[in-house]
Design a protein around this nucleic acid. Structure first.
Lengths: 251, 251
DNA sequence: TCCATGTTTGACCAAATGGTCCAAGTTCGA
DNA sequence: TCGAACTTGGACCATTTGGTCAAACATGGA
């Protein structure tokens, strides 16, 4: 804390106003995070002291614990105490690193953003359409297998109406999305792809692949498997790729 | 209340144990609700007094308000006060009709179950495969348009790991699911459908159609439309049907 | 009309929870 | 080695919130 002395006056409890007041900064932070997807440039990765390094490690541990808890319980359902416990530290200590639960939540969201956006940004016009689509499905499905919590966290945020992500969706994501739609459109014009609607194709691939993370409970109950089973993973990837490329109608 | 006098002793506050203790009853209730999908038999619809009728109306209003709030905020995020306000009654009065927030939540879930399961249960072997699939997509998509809150509520429940729905998933839904998989399998064996994996086909259709309700915020931000636009609804239905039936590869 | 029964609510309670504070460590550069 | 800055957590506080209660209020059947 820079200057604890100035805080002797009891700060009035933040209420509904706080969210509105902070949302500006939050939005900017998330948007910035979204824009730097891809370039893993560790700009400020200059040599750090042991202490700072340890701090980074602990910070990462907190974010990991927070992701796990938020993804299951949601922002409201998760308690700071529970997250702190999951991270193996005290609640007060957690609040030392992240000024508030909301701030922690935003940090987690921010961290997940790059993972979430990565597959689509690797989708380029260079490849053969079928290969590019298969690769996108594969990458997104791998995401659902390796980072289901990230997928769930974003799903949770969408279900809330995406209050924090809206600026990201409308800005950086929208840009990528439009660009990829253009790529698909070009393929269609070139006769390399059937006359599909580009936006719906992207939505469809997202929906199909994220489903296995977000609805894992249902998949497990009905199919008895999850993506962590190698066989099921392969089978799913094949089924989805085949569906998207060729559909179900016999040729 | 049957006998308020017996309650003079302050009941110890329910804690974590409560959920576990009640989950048995809850499970049975939900399973029963799932099993009666389809037969809208109003068995106990004998003539009621004005008072009882008004009661039904109010009860329905509460459920409606609760659905709206729960679907947006989740079980933890929703406050009883907020739901009561949305229903236009006092919190205490709401608690008069539903003994606890959890009980209300279960009642809402129960009510949504039939809507949620209906489309799949109407999926039969009688029709032509392509027609049946198109109809299923249409019905599910109409669900996403007309009752997005129901879809979102179930999505939230799945994201939590489906603690309350698991028995339903493992029981009644599993039965329907397996039956429909068999139908699809028969079509394949008869050469009327490509060699798709039946469970994945059903998952895919669910994923594709529910996406437009659950991720409406994203769809709106990226495509600028929602299913309530007639044109977008038609376009989406066509796109999804075409994708599932014929895929994207040019023929 | 009258009252037993069902309905409604304001006041209240106790637990949970987000967040603050301070005093006691710990670390690191000078 | 020494002190300034950084960490850590126990105690504490104010608010929110699920739930209870008693008393007032409707209502419909006898």
């Amino acid at each position: 804390m820079t200057d604890p002395a100035t805080k002797t006056v009891k700060a009035p409890r933040k209420t509904a106003a706080k969210a509105a007041a902070k949302s500006g900064q939050v939005a900017r932070k998330l948007v910035k995070a979204a824009q730097t997807v891809g370039d893993d440039s560790p700009v400020d990765n200059f040599p750090k002291g042991r202490r700072a390094q340890a701090g980074e490690v602990r910070k990462a541990a907190i974010l990991k614990a927070a992701l796990a808890v938020f993804a299951r319980q949601g922002l409201d359902g998760a308690s700071v105490e529970a997250i702190a416990q999951a991270a193996g530290i005290s609640k007060a200590n957690l609040l030392y690193y992240h000024p508030s639960k909301e701030a922690l939540y935003v940090a987690v969201l921010e961290q997940g953003l790059s993972l979430w956006l990565a597959p689509l940004s690797r989708f380029t016009a260079e490849e053969d359409p079928a290969d590019a689509i298969a690769a996108l499905i594969g990458a997104k499905l791998a995401m659902s297998r390796d980072h289901p919590e990230v997928s769930r966290l974003f799903a949770l945020e969408m279900l809330r109406g995406a209050p924090l992500l809206k600026p990201v969706l409308a800005g950086p994501l929208r840009a990528v999305f439009d660009a990829k739609c253009a790529v698909i459109g070009a393929w269609i014009d070139g006769g390399k792809l059937g006359r599909v609607d580009p936006p719906h194709l992207i939505f469809s691939i997202w929906a199909l692949t994220q489903h296995y993370a977000d609805f894992a409970a249902q998949v497990r109950a009905l199919a008895g498997k999850s993506l962590s089973d190698k066989a099921f993973m392969d089978e799913t990837q094949e089924a989805l790729t085949a569906l998207v490329l060729d559909g179900v109608r016999p040729r």
